[in-house]
Amino acid sequence: MNIFRLAGDMSHLVAILILLLKIWRSRSCAGISGKSQVLFALVFTTRYLDLFTSFISAYNTVMKVVFLALSYATVYLIYMRFRNSYDSENDTFRVEFLLVPVIGLSFLENYSFTPMEILWTFSIFLESVAIMPQLFMITKTGEAESITNHYLFFLGLYRALYIVNWVWRYHTEGFFDQIAVVSGVVQTIFYCDFFYLYVTRVLRGRGKMSLP
């Protein structure tokens, strides 16, 4: 464990909590893509199957349980508790356009052709595109509430910190996970456009930000 990865995991946790608390406190999920949240819950489900088979550390196990619980709680709030505020007209990204390539690629490119390994690879590739429905929804509605922007900012920060973590681990322990790194870089690139807008607009007090 290094400070970059710890900061990344904390930033990821903050992002998930920001969104969950925003929905719970405003009792509304307007402007939030339920599809992205379902994809994230699927990412955690397919990645953390080793929760019961391999023990890495208490931190690892606790964080996996927390991420699974919070992501399912978010999906529950969007599709059950506050479903009348779910903006389904604007959450129209065709997730099958994401799932089909990701499933195909995880069968082609993996470390070993075993169910656990293919599911893990699937979760890595899926995570890199899971935010697309949310970014698509923002371009469609033309704007994002500041809380949604903060959520996306911390999510992007988590990915950027993981890249720094991989550089650090490569130089200190020769660690290099090609699938995770390539997929993580692609994922971070999706946030670059958002990062630019976030810094130039949202941080200047204009609470609402509209993507081009």
Binding site: R5, D9, H12, D50, S54, I56, S57, N60, M63, K64, F67, Y111, S112, E117, W120, Y162, N165, F175, D177, A180
Partner: peptide
């Protein structure tokens, strides 16, 4: 066990 070790990231 190297595989399991390698997957120590969230």
């Amino acid at each position: 066990d190297e595989e399991a070790k390698a997957k120590d990231e969230l």
